[in-house]
Simulated assay, not measured.
Amino acid sequence: MRFELTDEQAGFGRALGDLLARADTVGVARAWAEGDTGPGLGLWKRLADQGVNALVVPEEAGGMGGSLVDLVVAHEVLGHHLAVGPWIEASAFLATALTGEALEAVAAGAVATVALPPHVPFALDGDVAEVVYAGTADGLLRARVGEIRASVDTTRRLAEVSAEAGADHAAGPEVSRLAGARTSTTGEVAAFDVAVLACSAQLVGCGERLLADTVAYAKQRRQFGREIGSYQAVKHQLADVRIALDFARPLVLGAALGEVPASAAKVAAADAAYLASRVGLQVHGAIGYTREFDLGLWITRVRALVGAWGTPAYHRGQVLATLTGSAR
């Protein structure tokens, strides 16, 4: 089966990429990491105006009624350009799990986030979000933000949350089946898997950016009178990254079409992006370790996303369960 984007989907991806390319996303990310969230929130609004938050929200709830492939296209671009904020939480999980006015608020561009133990123990950027949810045994509830924890990715702040006493449910109880539920009680793709899919797409986008920047550097850096990219040892490593990303993307698109388990897409995307970060760091050498060099922002983003929305061990276990017929 071939997984190809339509002209409309490809054009949407290019439009988002052009918007983010003009937005100085590296500067926005560095400001966000230092606590200056103004530029990031401004960019959030611009992306919301383009419909990113509303992509998979039904039209009757104020959304665009798009497909999961549309969501994948958007999140790969977000990863490629290092967009900050709880995009996976808002535009993927909550846009699928919420109902009523809560869903309409997300579609309209509200900055929303969620903690979903055990796989998502903290609410990303909970101190910045307009509304915070917590997954409980009874479903999603509005939550209060507690202690803020640091992440290996300085652009991500992780908030401890607790459900508010007497809070109304924001969605049905099916969203509380977190540990590997592949479908909801209605037979639709579970909100958790939609978030896993978005995370996978962001990993592919990060990997592509790391590869592009590393190839550009290998063409510029000279050693012993030659570009380092002309050495076979470097070429082979870069080729391995290219192959890994090219194998991961069809799995992500296949998962969006329901042909591949979301966990398989996450495993492949995480492995490919992590390989891209390792090779990028090795090719760049010591400069890749410095905080001033932009490459490190994508390396730490990849490191964070690899464990986000389910660890590699968890998703490998889900793939094994699917293959052996024991998946729930």
Rank of each mutant, 00 (worst) to 15 (best):
I243H: 06
I243P: 00
A244T: 07
A244F: 02
L245I: 05
L245G: 03
D246W: 00
D246H: 03
A248W: 02
R249Q: 13
R249C: 09
R249E: 15
L251C: 13
L253V: 06
L253A: 06
L253Y: 12
G254K: 03
G254S: 09
G254Q: 11
A256Y: 01
L257G: 15
L257Y: 11
L257H: 13
E259K: 01
V260I: 14
V260D: 11
P261K: 11
P261W: 06
S263Y: 04
S263K: 05
A264S: 15
A264T: 12
A265L: 08
A265S: 07
K266Q: 10
V267I: 10
V267N: 11
A268H: 00
A268R: 01
A269F: 03
A269C: 02
A270H: 07
A270G: 15
D271E: 14
D271Y: 01
A272P: 03
L275N: 03
L275V: 01
S277W: 00
R278D: 04
V279S: 01
G280D: 13
L281R: 14
L281P: 03
L281M: 15
L281V: 10
L281Q: 14
V283G: 11
V283P: 06
V283Y: 08
A286F: 02
A286W: 02
I287L: 14
I287A: 11
E292M: 02
E292N: 09
E292Q: 12
E292T: 11
E292S: 13
F293W: 15
D294G: 00
D294C: 04
D294Q: 09
D294E: 13
G296C: 03
G296V: 14
L297K: 00
L297S: 01
W298S: 10
W298R: 10
I299M: 09
T300V: 13
T300M: 12
T300K: 08
R301F: 10
V302D: 10
V302F: 00
R303C: 05
L305Q: 06
L305H: 06
G307K: 03
G307W: 01
G307L: 05
G307I: 02
W309L: 12
W309C: 10
W309F: 14
W309E: 13
W309H: 12
W309I: 08
T311G: 09
T311E: 12
P312I: 10
A313P: 02
Y314W: 14
H315M: 13
H315K: 08
R316P: 04
R316E: 15
R316M: 15
G317V: 04
G317L: 05
Q318N: 08
Q318Y: 02
